[in-house]
Design a protein around this nucleic acid. Structure first.
Lengths: 151, 151
DNA sequence: CAAAATCCGTTTGCATACGAATGAGTTTCA
DNA sequence: TGAAACTCATTCGTATGCAAACGGATTTTG
């Protein structure tokens, strides 16, 4: 009994690896994300990180269906709906039925939406910079490369 | 106008860096976490990642106040309350008032809680392993080291 | 063409996640 | 000692995040 489990990387012996929460990738990811979100809120309390991401992609795409916008920013259909609702409530985006496909709900940034994105994008870049601040330039690049492989 | 913002890394020129969502650390972190949570659910649908983390730390500490447990697993007071409630509902943990400090709510794993942790910890280690599968051993170690610096 | 397979948006239900406010208990320290 | 400062747990409100189920629209395919 106890917290030991078999270590499949060894053979011939019955070595074990304890489960140490603080060394698990999932726990680390969660804590780094927490720190990042805190930094985001410091720099940009007007929008959530999620809302800004959707707005950024929306400004990049111009006009796009709600579902596809969700795919582009890796958000569930239920999640992207809420995010778009909140962007609409803040007059940063508008929606209308796609005349060519009655299923689709086209989303488009408003003037104010584009203005907000332009206004806040340097702050958002500052968030990235501050998040990576404990690392050297090389380390930061290495981290982004490694994370990309885990997508 | 447009999506350009000043690049503070240059001087003497007015070079700009566009805001590219897909290259921001926050967006990458979010997507890697999504993948990790999906893998966790595949291996361990019985418990959420959060619940397992709290249970693991609880088994490590034995008996601890709800607030301190939250701090140890990096969860907000409101969040840890819900998690402990759900662990209690599954008979994996029990709580009682601390007789020495009326403010504190002591949390303790049940027999079933310890049994569940022992039973699932190898699966949880498998989650870590599969999450890091796209990386070599060296890369994985490097990643954990870099993430640790961002905590 | 028409049935089957897809796709789209919505809703519901559950589980994090955090800020802020509240009330109760404990510690500090003037 | 006694008020101020702090700690703890709870609650409320808001915002993700995902699974599942639904009805409607479109595309695929036999």
């Amino acid at each position: 009994m106890g917290i030991m489990t078999k270590n499949s990387a060894t053979k011939g012996t019955t070595e074990t690896t304890p489960y140490l929460l603080d060394q698990q990738i999932g726990f680390l990811l969660r804590r780094v994300q927490q720190r990042h979100l805190a930094i985001f809120f410091d720099h940009l309390p007007e929008l959530t990180s999620t809302q800004f991401a959707a707005l950024a992609k929306l400004c990049e795409l111009g006009s796009v269906s709600q579902n596809e916008l969700g795919r582009r920013v890796a958000m569930d259909v239920a999640t992207i709906k809420g995010v778009v609702d909140r962007l609409r409530a803040r007059d940063l985006a508008v929606t209308k039925k796609d005349p060519n496909d009655q299923r689709r709900l086209l989303v488009r940034p408003t003037k104010a939406g584009r203005a907000a994105f332009n206004h806040f994008s340097s702050a958002a870049l500052g968030v990235t910079k501050e998040t990576l601040d404990p690392l050297t330039q090389k380390e930061a690049e290495r981290l982004l490369t490694l994370l990309s492989k885990l997508t």
